[in-house]
Design a protein around this nucleic acid. Structure first.
Length: 208
DNA sequence: AAGAAGATTCGCT
DNA sequence: GCGAATCTTCTTA
């Protein structure tokens, strides 16, 4: 397989400014489809296009902010554009983008990326060379991008190692569906994805 | 102090 | 497709 970063110049990715982020969890979840997640490591840059998200808005019983702020969940209550990283099922980190005003608990779960730069390093992190599986699913995404609890609370609009960006290619058609893996509010259409992308998880559940 | 649940993944059938 | 793995956090005693 031809590796993009060896045959193309580095992508021209510009930082997203906080003022560009919609001040609404559902709008932000849709807005982030087609945007870039970038992690600059000493070994090189990891980047990918966001192709799948889920919204966990204010007051959502399925959201981690439901029931109020705790030390482990404080990042969800930060101003929009900060990361909330948590560990679950004894094996997976997952990354959210906080999505409302400071003091309001809500977030957007990043569920899948189309890997673009640093693919060889992502393959090492994930232990597989199957491109479409590298960041398909929230736990795999975090592992491929080398995201763990150290990155909880990071400002994704600041000039740090982990950030959100915009590259030239925009999103295609955006679809909606029910969210995956939850037991409450299961009927809400709070999941957004790029139609036709092979990098989206749970393809069998895309019915909308 | 003990137990249960959890925004999943992987391996096996 | 199904079920185990695995551990943090929160609840209850």
């Amino acid at each position: 397989m031809v590796r993009r970063e060896k045959t193309h110049a580095p992508l021209d990715i510009r930082h997203l400014r906080r003022s560009e982020l919609p001040v609404d969890t559902l709008k932000l979840a849709r807005y982030l489809i087609g945007k870039m997640l970038v992690h600059d490591l000493p070994q090189g840059r990891l980047s990918g296009r966001i192709v799948e998200t889920e919204a966990y808005p204010i007051g959502d019983p399925a959201g981690h902010s439901f029931g109020g702020e705790t030390p482990s969940r404080r990042s969800l209550f930060l101003e929009r554009g900060r990361s909330y990283v948590y560990f679950t099922y004894g094996s997976c980190f997952m990354m959210n983008v906080s999505s409302e005003k400071a003091g309001e608990g809500a977030g957007v779960l990043l569920r899948a990326l189309e890997p673009l730069e640093g693919i060889a390093l992502m393959e090492r992190h994930r232990g597989t060379q199957h491109l479409v599986d590298l960041a398909r699913g929230p736990g795999r995404l975090a592992k491929a991008m080398h995201i763990d609890k150290r990155y909880d609370g990071v400002d994704l609009c600041a000039d740090g190692p982990l950030w959100l960006g915009v590259a030239l290619r925009s999103a295609g058609t955006i679809g909606m569906s029910i969210r995956i893996g939850i037991t409450r509010e299961v009927h809400q259409l709070y999941r957004f994805y790029e139609r036709g992308s092979p990098y989206v998880s749970g393809l069998k559940r895309l019915r909308y």
